[in-house]
Nucleic acid binder design. Structure first.
Lengths: 321, 321
DNA sequence: TCCGATATCGAGACCGGTATCGATACCGGT
DNA sequence: ACCGGTATCGATACCGGTCTCGATATCGGA
């Protein structure tokens, strides 16, 4: 008991003995056992993060933000991937809950009932991220995807565009991209405008996919003055296609992505985007969990809205050249 | 005890009772406690992964590969970030070891002695990844960074290039990039060739940084026919600079990166790169851990070399357009 | 010198499971 | 009817810590 207290700085131990215990621990290379600690104290230092994928840089940056928010607190991140699959999401979350984490950060608001029930009854503080269109279980950090799509539509309309196309990937899986498209089209409809054409694919998001989809889209006609892509990757691929085929961007067609990836600022041509505060979303989500852990409440009922920023002019590095 | 056996499919329970227990568990929404299970059984289902950063897509893909290798086995990934800092690495690894993970995957072979000792004496199977230049603790998956740099140098020489420049980021932190540069210069030296000039910066890797470094590099002279960048991000930034300034790539200067990121294939201009099997490295590392867990050995002494592939012609999508 | 307050220490219970092993019931064969 | 073997079940110890609380020592003040 005295040794345990000494190693934890828990007080009630004489300075002399603290030092003796510390030294002995160093000598034998003692590494405390968190499994036992957690079982005994009925709490863990684990914070779970469930994202669809890490090879998508957006979620990788969210994880990075979470790690940043946790850093220095002694908590430890655990991650799980869902591959955009509801069943895997359920299993992943169940697996995490069996470790009784201090908190759980889950992507999206649209979990199936089973999953919601599991989370709600777990007693673990839950923060959902990247969306605001729905009913959070506890807390929630992000922005309305629908509104984000609508905001971009309004900005583009104000910029004089009238003939819009839509090109998207992973349409069957990426709920948030679907919401953006919905918001986008709704805002256009308010001005009595419809999409000229759209082209979607179930393929995974990538620059290459964006390139080939854009080729296909434009081969069916050059009848648009703006394309709204489901995200920046696709839009960048679209730009590369245009560059290779002498299509003036943004002169003839403005390409519009989503997320505000770093690459957008460095591109030789301007493309429009919405900057999403991904790292910050992760960081704030982690902070909400930490608050809930320290408060007696044990609930993380806090909603934080972090709006994306529409950027038609993508303050580019180019200007420095 | 009977309930425990029923839920684990451990046998010695009548089918009738198995069903009764299962049903009762469902009814009350029982979620087993892995903390207790682990303490009792003296093993966990956790596999730790320590990487420098997740916002670097390369490591995000390694994590993705690890998750892929683990998928369906009941194991769970835990991740830790080091920010390329040896002290944070030590603390992160210590934190993970305190959970007595089934295995640990650590980036790089060049941990300080303290850290090596900690890992070696932990009794946990360790697999080091992304490097082969050094002495692995247990197992090791990756390739020789030095040789990767040399291989690219030889390929470029064979391709007729003679006047080489080097542009790099994060020079003080990224040991692996340093090794590549070393291998690159050594291979040049074997042909009696030296770098014409080099420009390095401590700034973090990004496309923008690559762009501005390249601007600075070329403003000091157009006296090279090839630039070796510390990685693809920097090289892509370099390309964007060249495109904006009418520099013919690869006609006047060939740009050379490292990693073989997806974007390279989709770019309007050709840049050279080495394709690294990042996802596969993660997957194989996970598999080695799993083997060690199942074998009695409890050691993961297996070395797998997954060579990068030099690609001067980056089979580009462009050709399809 | 005596007393209550404070500092320090450690015995014992406990966290929620699993490993072990003995108890019981039932079975078919002789 | 007796016997060894198998199926099923549960009592008990244990995993490695922490929590609680009582015991002891020490100290300043009356």
């Amino acid at each position: 008991m005295t040794a345990s207290r000494a190693l934890r700085n828990a007080g009630d131990v004489s300075p002399l003995n603290v030092e003796k215990v510390r030294q002995a621990a160093r000598d034998i290379g003692y590494v405390g056992n968190h499994v036992a600690t957690s079982l005994s104290s009925q709490r863990t230092n684990l914070i779970g993060a469930v994202v669809p994928s890490t090879s998508n840089i957006v979620f990788a940056q969210v994880l990075s933000g979470i790690a940043e928010g946790i850093a220095g607190t002694g908590f430890q991140p655990v991650f799980g991937l869902t591959d955009y699959d509801a069943e895997r999401e359920y299993e992943t979350i169940r697996g995490m809950l069996s470790w009784r984490p201090a908190g759980l950060i889950v992507t999206g608001l649209d979990q199936p009932d089973m999953t919601r029930k599991l989370l709600a009854e777990s007693g673990v503080p839950v923060v959902q991220i990247m969306d605001q269109d729905g009913d959070p279980i506890d807390g929630c950090v992000g922005f309305s995807q629908t509104e984000a799509g609508a905001a971009m539509a309004r900005a583009l309309l104000a910029n004089g565009h009238r003939r819009f196309g839509y090109v998207g990937c992973a349409v069957d899986k990426d709920t948030r991209a679907m919401k953006r498209r919905l918001g986008f089209e709704t805002a256009l409809a308010e001005q009595g405008i419809e999409l000229v054409r759209s082209l979607t694919s179930g393929m995974a998001t990538s620059i290459e996919t964006g390139r080939s989809l854009t080729r296909q889209f434009l081969s069916e006609g050059r009848d648009v003055d703006c394309i709204y892509f489901s995200n920046d990757d696709i839009a960048v691929g679209g730009l590369f296609h245009c560059m290779d085929n002498g299509i003036d961007v943004p002169g003839e067609i403005l390409l519009t992505g989503f997320n505000g990836l770093d690459i957008v600022k460095a591109l030789p041509n301007r493309i429009a985007t919405s900057h999403t505060p991904r790292r910050e979303i992760g960081r704030v989500a982690a902070e909400i969990i930490l608050e809930a852990v320290h408060d007696k409440s044990q609930r993380a009922r806090k909603v934080v809205v972090l709006e994306p920023r529409v950027d038609l002019d993508a303050e580019r590095v180019a200007s420095q050249d």
